[in-house]
Amino acid sequence: MTLFEVKDLRAGYGKVDVLFGVSLTASKGELIGIVGPNGAGKSTLFGAIVGTVGMRGGSVFLDGEDISGKRPEDIVRLGLSLVPEGRQIFGGLSVIENLTLGLTGRRDKHGEKGALERVHDLFPVLTTHRDHQAGMLSGGQQQQLAIARALVADPRVLLLDEPSLGLSPTVVKDVFDRLIAIAESGTAVVIVEQRAHLVTRLAERTHVLRAGKMQATLTKEDAADEAKLAAAYFGNSGE
């Protein structure tokens, strides 16, 4: 059953339209990928979904409820969290203070302690660095903190914008292993990535966003097909 649905979404900035009717769905426990070149509108798509970029048309449904146009803080409380590009952790605050801020978006205030324990189990490094300044963590650790901070809000849908950005291949593998575990626990995970190989190999479906439109949908099997991947990513020319 579909948990999350984006229907014919249009968005942009000022006089510039960026998205021209984008649609996608995700069910409970699914990991969905969105790939595309720079300027394709990937971050705009997430911004429009979470309410930080104004929508110009279309709808976003979470568990059947239309959440289009709601305020970002209300959308988080309804169960949709975003791990933004560049992580945007609060570098001046400690790890635990960052996690505590993530609790703001919880619907169930009684489960806060359990939520913190769960993310500490999933990301043990955060326990080690509990009282350290978040800005002093390595890139991989900061990414784990950003994901953990979103998870403590107990989201039903987790959006991640370029989670591999600036990370070494080993760290990227580690981060994606955790994302698979999160999806397996029942959360719908939607990942925007420039590294098409990486996400296509892991996601149930990977949508190719180019010039503000979904141009193709790839499966895990397509990850091995270089030509098909390139054609979908860059357009028919494959350049």
Partner: peptide, 11 residues
């Protein structure tokens, strides 16, 4: 510290 990130956390 980051007024853009805060709403994404439900703040």
């Amino acid at each position: 510290e980051d007024p853009l990130a805060a709403p994404a956390l439900g703040i």
